[in-house]
C-alpha cells in the first residue's frame, strides 16, 4: 500500500537533515536543502493534516503563498527546533479555553456568551446556537462564534455546576 503511488507522486518529507527552521521576529521561517538545492523560503506556515487526531505529527509546511514545501512526519524528530515548531503550532491552532460561563442568553436567534477563558474574559455572539456548539464524546466542546472564531471547553463534565447548567441542553 505504502508505495502505491511511488512512481507518480512524491511527497517531500522534511527532516532535520534537509530542513532548518529559524525565527525571524515573531514568525517562523525555513531553509531547505533538498536534492542538493539550497533554498531560503522565508516565513512559512504550518498546517496540521489531521488537526483532530494528530497534534504533533503529519504537519504540512507551506510557503506564505500557500504552496507546500513538504511534510513533517513528527516534530519530535527535530531535536533543537522541536520547541520552535511546537510553539508555532500552538499559536496557529490556538483556541481560547473556556473555564467558566458567566452568562449565556438567547435573543432573536443569537446567543450572547459571557465567559472566562485561559487568556481573560470575553463576550461573543453565536448564531443558531444548536448548530454552532459541537460536542465530542470525550466531553470536549467547540463553540464557533458569528465571526468564525472558535472557543473550546476541554471537558464539559469538569465545568462548575452553574456553568454546565447553562450549556447542558446544547450538548
Amino acid at each position: 500500500m505504502n508505495n502505491m503511488f511511488e512512481n507518480i507522486i512524491k511527497i517531500v518529507y522534511l527532516t532535520p537533515e534537509n530542513a532548518t527552521f529559524y525565527k525571524t521576529g515573531d514568525f517562523l521561517a525555513l531553509k531547505t536543502n533538498i536534492d542538493g538545492e539550497e533554498k531560503d523560503h522565508g516565513i512559512i506556515k504550518l498546517r496540521r493534516l489531521f488537526p483532530f487526531e494528530e497534534l504533533w505529527r503529519d504537519i504540512s509546511v507551506l510557503t506564505s503563498g500557500n504552496e507546500e514545501i513538504g511534510v513533517i512526519r513528527d516534530v519530535t524528530l527535530f531535536g533543537e527546533s522541536e520547541a520552535l515548531l511546537r510553539d508555532e503550532l500552538c499559536r496557529v491552532y490556538f483556541t481560547p479555553k473556556i473555564t467558566k460561563i458567566l452568562s449565556m442568553k438567547e435573543k432573536y436567534g443569537f446567543s450572547n456568551w459571557d465567559v472566562e477563558t485561559d487568556i481573560g474574559k470575553i463576550t461573543f455572539s453565536v448564531r443558531d446556537t444548536f448548530r454552532s456548539v459541537h460536542s465530542f464524546e470525550s466531553g470536549r466542546v467547540i463553540i464557533t462564534d458569528v465571526d468564525g472564531s472558535r472557543y473550546e471547553i476541554v471537558d464539559a463534565g469538569k465545568l462548575d455546576k452553574a456553568s454546565y447548567r447553562k450549556i447542558e441542553i446544547y450538548l
Partner: peptide, 26 residues
C-alpha cells in the same frame, strides 16, 4: 490562524507583529 489572526507591519522587509485579534476584528 485558526481562531485568531496576527496583524503585522512589514518594516525593512521584515514582519513586525503589531497585535493579535480574534476574527471579530479580521
Amino acid at each position: 490562524l485558526l481562531s485568531t489572526c496576527r496583524f503585522y507591519a512589514v518594516v525593512d522587509g521584515e514582519r513586525q507583529l503589531l497585535t493579535y485579534a480574534t476574527f471579530f476584528a479580521k
